[in-house]
Simulated assay, not measured.
Amino acid sequence: MDIIYFRDYCLSKSGTTEDTPFDKDTLCFRVGGKIFAITDMLHFESINLKCDPDIAIELREKYSGIQPGFHMNKKHWNTVSCDGSVSDSLILKLADDSYDLIFYSLPKKVQEDLNNK
């Protein structure tokens, strides 16, 4: 997988926006103004994704390419390697899960508005 594929995948999700709030190379994907994925655009080596804390621990134990979130809350975020140690299909599933965690934490009215765009 490359950054273009991952970017297109994230932007295909309802209400997703992108920005670079930290520096010109760090790309954030948001839903309802809240970040669900962060990656480096120039060196697409890993992605920070939000994760249920219990599942995050299981994933870290099972996959060497999944570590506690770099520069993030280690309980709720994982850094997922894009070096092949984690399959593309699992990376996309984890991106889906991250999006869902954020989306379903939003107020119902915001969820409805995003679904109607």
Rank of each mutant, 00 (worst) to 15 (best):
M1W: 04
D2M: 07
D2Q: 08
I4A: 15
Y5D: 09
F6S: 00
F6H: 01
D8W: 03
D8L: 08
L11S: 10
L11C: 11
S12F: 07
S12R: 10
S12T: 09
S12V: 09
K13G: 08
S14P: 05
S14H: 10
S14R: 13
G15I: 00
T17A: 15
T17H: 07
D19K: 11
P21S: 13
P21D: 12
P21H: 14
P21Q: 08
P21M: 14
P21T: 12
D25K: 06
T26P: 00
L27G: 01
L27N: 00
F29R: 11
R30L: 09
V31H: 01
V31G: 02
G33M: 11
I35L: 13
I35H: 05
I35F: 15
A37R: 05
I38M: 14
T39L: 14
H43N: 13
F44R: 01
F44H: 00
E45I: 07
S46Y: 09
I47Q: 12
C51H: 05
C51E: 11
D52K: 09
P53Q: 03
P53A: 00
P53C: 00
E61T: 03
E61Y: 01
K62C: 07
G65N: 02
I66Q: 04
Q67A: 11
Q67V: 15
Q67I: 12
F70Q: 05
H71G: 06
K74N: 02
H76T: 13
N78L: 04
N78R: 03
N78W: 05
V80I: 09
V80Q: 02
S81A: 14
S81Y: 08
C82V: 10
V86N: 02
D88A: 11
L90Q: 10
K93N: 13
L94M: 15
D97H: 14
Y99C: 05
Y99A: 08
I102R: 13
F103K: 08
Y104P: 03
S105T: 10
P107C: 04
P107F: 08
P107L: 06
K108M: 01
K108E: 02
Q111V: 09
Q111Y: 09
D113K: 08
L114S: 01
L114I: 07
N115T: 05
N116K: 14
K117D: 01
K117T: 02
K117L: 04
